[in-house]
Design a protein around this nucleic acid. Structure first.
Length: 479
DNA sequence: TGTTTGTTCTA
DNA sequence: AGAACAAAC
């Protein structure tokens, strides 16, 4: 009679879960656990919005386990290694099964867990699953990591073979009585109720993730290429928070798309446009894995002493609150605050505005997103912000500065997105919706809408000058 | 997956 | 006057 621990991490699902599957097939009983050790994840412990999601996701996972005769055990402590050693002693488990995680802190966590468990005669069995391909497989011919997306993409498409997801287990058999804490005791929910918008927007949990995937794959993928850049349209998959917590695996998404393609439900073009996004995620994980310092430092060392101004708290505050006076930026920042999510096109616009026009460090933006996004993912967030700031891998050229007025006109031509999120402009005529200064004197909209906090043209010129300087900084070195 | 500016062509 | 395009940042 053998017992194993199934340690759930960023894989809060029963479907397509290789660790769960292996534990069940190799042992008589299993103890499913979630370990909450935020100190170990610093300085990137889950932010407030992610914690909200995590709470509900754990509730859902617990319910799913109970439907199959199992139960999710909760432990809270300083280190996963110590908690696992305790659990093994308490249950007599000889092995711990978990998904390998590529975030630097989580990789460190699993190394120390493996060592500690070894010390008490138990083993840590790691399974791949966070990415479509194991990251060790995604290096160039000479063994060095990719730094440009397009070659990464070509290599990926050469290596990748779609495979079907594993089914969820029918029955979970547990040993008798293992003590547990309650999810509610982890204190993941906000103390003051700011989560109303999150509750009306999202339904965390694996079954909701599967429904979302199905809706996207049947109803929306065909138009994805056409409408994915329009924030007023529900045109993207909206799977990101589910994917972040592993309520759905990238393999489940890829397989569903693949099947649709085989069945000719969708065009190859639509499939590929979306699939590229999944591979961007793979690329982000690869970069994070090979360059773990890029969560806190610019990938391009020319930016090490970049003169981010420290004295523009007023601009940063306006940006966070969605009160910059630039409608598409404010709409995005308010969507983020209300729903814990922002359309990706708008993420690029607000990031370009913060880093280039305001000249504020990408890291400040990354931290704010980290705290407010329900899909905050270390790999994607770090890569996205460094890309926007122009200091990351395959980054936007320094002169690529989004003009928020132009971007608004291009991607929200009717101003629907702006009207939805910036109520002060609800009555503004279309001629003034993207550039309210044009209609301000005529009193055509709520005058409490803020004046622009800065002069776009002047700040653009300033950014060009400062960024041009970085070219004279010491050449980048990647260690 | 950029924006601006200047030039040329067309009406 | 305005579209289409190229070049520079």
């Amino acid at each position: 009679m053998t017992t194993a621990i199934v340690w759930f991490r960023n894989d809060l699902r029963l479907h397509d879960n290789p660790s769960l599957r292996a534990a069940l097939s190799e042992h008589d009983t299993v103890v499913p656990v979630y370990l909450w050790t935020p100190a170990e994840e610093q300085p990137w412990a889950p932010g407030a919005a992610s914690r909200w999601w995590l709470h509900h996701s754990l509730e859902q996972l617990g319910a799913e386990l109970e439907r199959r005769g199992g139960k999710l055990h909760i432990r809270h402590g300083q280190s996963a290694a110590a908690l696992l050693v305790d659990l093994c002693a308490e249950t007599g488990a000889s092995a711990v099964y978990a998904q390998r995680c590529y975030e630097p802190m989580l990789a460190k966590q699993e190394q120390s867990a493996a060592a500690k468990l070894n010390g008490v005669g138990a083993r840590l069995q790691l399974a791949e699953g966070q990415t479509l391909l194991p990251l060790r497989a995604s290096t160039k011919a000479d063994g060095s990591p990719f730094r440009v997306f397009t070659p990464f993409w070509r290599n990926f498409m050469k290596e990748y073979i779609p495979s079907p997801p594993l089914p969820a287990p029918i029955r979970i058999t547990m040993p008798q009585r293992v003590s547990t804490n309650y999810i509610a005791d982890l204190g993941l929910l906000p103390r003051i109720a700011w989560d109303g918008g999150l509750r009306e927007t999202w339904q965390p949990g694996a079954s909701s993730a599967l429904r979302a995937l199905d809706r996207f794959a049947t109803e929306r993928i065909e138009r994805y290429g056409k409408v994915r850049d329009l924030p007023a349209v529900v045109g993207t998959s909206r799977l990101s928070p589910h994917l972040r917590f592993g309520e759905i695996s990238p393999r489940q998404i890829a397989w569903r798309l693949w099947q649709g393609l085989q069945a000719k439900d969708i065009s190859a073009g639509a499939h590929e446009t979306y699939f590229r996004q999944l591979v961007w995620r793979e690329f982000a994980f690869s970069v994070l894995h090979h360059f773990p310092q890029t969560t806190d430092r610019p990938f391009n060392s020319r930016f090490n002493d970049f003169p981010w101004p420290m004295d523009r708290d007023d601009w940063f505050t306006s940006w966070r609150r969605g009160r910059t006076g630039f409608p598409i930026v404010d709409a995005g920042m308010r969507e983020l605050w209300h729903t814990g999510w922002m359309h990706n096109r708008v993420r690029m616009i607000v990031a370009s505005f913060l880093t280039k026009h305001c000249g504020i460090s990408w890291l400040a933006g990354a931290r704010w997103f980290w705290d407010t996004l329900v899909d905050a993912d270390l790999a994607n967030n770090s890569m996205g912000w460094q890309w926007s700031a122009g200091c990351g891998v395959d980054a936007a050229p320094y002169f690529r500065i989004f003009n928020p007025l132009r971007q608004g006109e291009r991607f929200d031509p009717k101003g629907e997105y702006i009207r939805r999120w910036v109520p002060e402009l609800r009555d503004a005529p279309i001629q003034a919706i993207h550039d309210p200064q044009r209609g301000r004197s005529k009193g055509l909209f709520d005058a409490t809408y803020p004046e622009p906090i800065l002069d776009l043209d002047e700040r653009r010129q300033h950014a060009l000058a400062v960024y041009r300087e970085t070219r004279h900084h010491p050449a980048p070195r990647h260690v």
